[in-house]
Design a protein around this nucleic acid. Structure first.
Lengths: 164, 164
DNA sequence: AATTGACCTGTAAGAAATGACATGTCAGAT
DNA sequence: ATCTGACATGTCATTTCTTACAGGTCAATT
């Protein structure tokens, strides 16, 4: 299960509340993993039970900020370094790209143009993110990768949209 | 649920048995969606029940070849064209890339080098696939996209592995 | 003073996915 | 003749994920 280690990894970046983690899954991590708050809160409880995270402070609205324990840090490292990655993925957008060839010319064009619009918007968001990021923050490399992949995807989509 | 439409899409490409579908999920579709045979067989039964697919022939070892019905084709088209894509994805490899920044220089290098090796191998497979593919087969464009994304990923991974 | 919207945490039923179990066929090699 | 490996289909218990329900706080606007 990757959710556990995704949460562990986000907490390693900075101590957070469940609410903040939910937002991170929707924003920075959205092109890698997705999780709802209804999964996150029980998972935080589980991490605490395992001794990998603990509540380090409580906010005025009942919020609980979790941080990794030493055991949590070493578990995260162990997982990243020693556990062979599970390469299987679930990506509906990619399934659609794969199946786009089945459509007739008009439908195909419409579908690819919809995707072009989406990727363009994502590109704008990534650019904005990069521009107000400390350039020597380590996370900048990941944003850069996102931009590069978006660029080739956009080029390919445009080729497909203008095909026939 | 995308599994349903992924199966529908594979059957639209060519009528297949559950066993063949399972292999396609492991091979051609592996970077987009993953499904085990234990999910595929019940799904085929469901598709038949919905009237979207039917058994068109039976092989000597009890195999059943399914094909789309007309209703199945129009459902697939409807989904591709009219249903807004679910952009949420699950990709453990991407989570790991995202979290790689948390590691110390040595661990990070080892992890990125493992990924380089994996992507190189995948690249070789994609090249082989492209080379024995009819160049005007529509599927060739998808293989090409895979190769382009692999290329930028490989470049980025090498940069990361040789950083510091 | 009331309202709105962001913040904040949880639970529970049901759907989807995995891993293990279970069974059998057929072709080719030893 | 036996064995191995690919072919082939299914079920079931458990785990994971989604959707819907449910409740409460606080700051800023009206």
């Amino acid at each position: 299960m990757s959710l556990r280690h995704a949460v562990l990894g986000l907490l390693a970046r900075r101590p957070s509340t469940g609410y903040e983690l939910a937002r991170m899954f929707d924003l920075s991590l959205r092109s890698a993993w997705h999780a709802k708050h209804s999964q996150i809160y029980p998972e935080l409880a589980k991490l605490e039970e395992l001794g990998w995270a603990e509540v380090v402070s409580r906010g005025p609205r009942g919020s609980k900020t979790y941080a990794l324990t030493d055991a949590g840090h070493s578990e995260l490292r162990r997982w990243l370094v020693e556990v062979p990655p599970d390469r299987g993925q679930r990506n509906e957008g990619a399934v659609r790209l794969f199946l786009g060839q089945l459509l007739g010319p008009e439908d195909r064009r419409a579908v690819f143009e919809r995707d072009v619009a989406y990727v363009e918007q994502e590109e704008a968001e990534l650019r904005a993110l990069r521009d107000d990021l400390d350039p020597d923050e380590p996370f900048a490399a990941q944003v850069d990768l996102g931009l590069r992949i978006n660029a080739v995807l956009l080029e390919w989509l445009r080729e497909q949209a203008s095909r026939d």
